[in-house]
Design a protein around this nucleic acid. Structure first.
Lengths: 172, 172
DNA sequence: ATTACTGTACCGTCCAGTCGGCACAGTAAA
DNA sequence: TTTACTGTGCCGACTGGACGGTACAGTAAT
């Protein structure tokens, strides 16, 4: 059911995420959808929650057992932008649905608030912040299909971000 | 008239940008609005065009007469994020209206495609890309009110970005 | 006479949310 | 074993409101 909603938001776009569309995708009637979620907002809330959990999970699977300094940050970089325009189109599309509703944005804000402290604990603040921002920038630009980079350029940048996170090399 | 539309999109949010709301804000009737813009899409197009022009203008006013290497990039950084949550709420809010319509996004994409080559000409590619991404990241996070930084932290990061752009110092 | 509107009355579409009811499984008393 | 009843999951028709857009008669300034 949530899967159906995600399919709609990815294939049809944010504005077309209507209860009817979800119902069609889930091979249910709208009444059936409303039976499980009392309102559209409730459905969106569930989607947001699941997206956040999935984001946590994605980073954790890339995390080594005993992370060296910077490796948490590196795992974050890879989880976020390692795979260009990957499966995370969901969170992206979702963001643009949810952006207008402060109530729905609250958990997202919470998520972002905790993210930097979590991933940048063992890295100098300014470096962690820079990498965090660049990573989010790339992610958000991918989301809006605004990225001006060629595939090769993008790969180079992702590599650079990973190296900066883990090794502490200098920026060229 | 465009001012009125911008006022609406900033104060009421992206979803509330309706023709009626614009008319009310402009102290016109809906007929009056439709007299100038044949459709809502035409109005949005005009808004996008103006926002892009304004963004160009903002950078140019910060540009020294004979820019040293890196100073174009520095001007870009300052124009984009120098003033926290500044007047550029317009472009932000606008983006989330326009994001769903490929036709309206085309000029925006064009704008972004040309931006990096323009601002990073005299700076090593990877450095320019990193600064560009971090700047856009900060801008986009401000837009969605997702920035996890305190005022002091934000100021420090903006300073760092400016220095990295102009001087070529190392990342701490 | 042209230009720039106003005001009102519509139309069609889309959408969230409501409501009555159907099918069916389980249960439990008679 | 039949009968009566309950709760769950779902259907589909409908309501009411919002919105984009149309049509048009009138007005006031240039």
């Amino acid at each position: 059911m949530l899967d159906a909603a995600e399919a709609v938001v990815v294939t049809q776009g944010a504005v077309r995420l209507t209860l009817d569309a979800v119902a069609r995708q889930a091979k249910l009637s709208k009444g059936g959808v409303m039976y499980h979620f009392p309102s559209k907002e409730a459905l969106l809330q569930a989607l947001v929650t699941r997206a956040i959990e999935r984001s946590h999970a994605a980073r954790e699977t890339l995390l080594p057992a005993a992370p060296q300094p910077g490796q948490v940050l590196q795992a974050y970089v890879r989880a976020s932008v390692g795979d260009p325009l990957g499966n995370d189109r969901v969170s992206g599309a979702l963001l643009s649905v949810v952006a207008s509703d402060p109530k729905l944005m609250a958990p997202v804000r919470e998520f972002f608030r905790k993210r930097l402290p979590a991933i940048g604990k063992d890295v100098p603040f300014e470096r962690a912040a820079l990498i965090h921002l660049a990573t989010e920038g790339l992610w958000l630009m991918d989301l809006f299909k605004l990225s001006p980079f060629t595939k090769a350029q993008r790969a180079k940048i992702v590599r650079l971000l990973g190296e900066l996170a883990a090794a502490g090399g200098a920026v060229p």
